[in-house]
């Protein structure tokens, strides 16, 4: 069970390989990677601000809740901060379990809680100026299904 908050990029393949390395009891690994998207063609950068004193603990708390609810053999959350270019990796979660259902569901759970409970804020820097990304009502509603 690992949480990393970092400015630097990560190697998705290497992270997933490391998650189950040397183990024979894991039958399923599910991962999600969030990327900086530019749907209009005018995004220059996505700036991610966070609350350093709170971020690590908040992510660990979300991960601990997933571990309590599902039979997980390993899990990983990496979340970046700073100024990221379109196409860049923002974050990833990965969950490993004996069976796929636990791995899928827990990864979904982690993402829902990361969206609205991890202290990050996104600012889009475009050609016409910069604007903070608003939280979506649907993201808050999504928490209720767990």
């Amino acid at each position: 069970m690992t949480v990393r908050v970092q400015a630097t990029d990560f190697d998705l393949g290497a992270e997933l390989a490391a998650l189950s390395k040397g183990r024979v009891d894991i039958g399923a690994v599910v991962s999600f990677t969030g990327l900086v998207r530019d749907l209009t063609g005018d995004l220059q950068a996505l700036e991610l601000e966070h609350y350093p004193a709170m971020t690590q603990a908040a992510l660990e708390e979300i991960e601990a809740e997933a571990v309590k609810r599902w039979d997980l053999d390993a899990s990983l959350i990496i979340h970046r901060y700073g100024r990221l270019q379109p196409g860049a990796q923002i974050m990833m979660v990965a969950t490993a379990s004996k069976h796929r259902k636990a791995a899928f569901e827990s990864a979904d759970f982690l993402m829902d809680f990361l969206k609205s409970r991890a202290p990050f804020w996104k600012k889009e820097h475009g050609l016409a100026g910069a604007a903070w990304v608003d939280a979506k009502e649907a993201d808050e509603t999504a928490l209720k299904r767990w």
Binding site: G34, Y51, A53, M54, H79, I90, M91, M111, L114, K115, S116, R117, A118, P119, F120, W121, K122, W132, V133, D134, A135, E140
Partner: peptide
């Protein structure tokens, strides 16, 4: 995270921010 009516009591650090947009 706390509600708006939370007592400050022995708190040392108070943070104000918009709804979070992680992930």
């Amino acid at each position: 995270l706390v509600a708006l009516d939370a007592p400050l009591a022995d708190a040392r650090e108070v943070a104000f921010f918009p709804p979070m947009t992680g992930g």
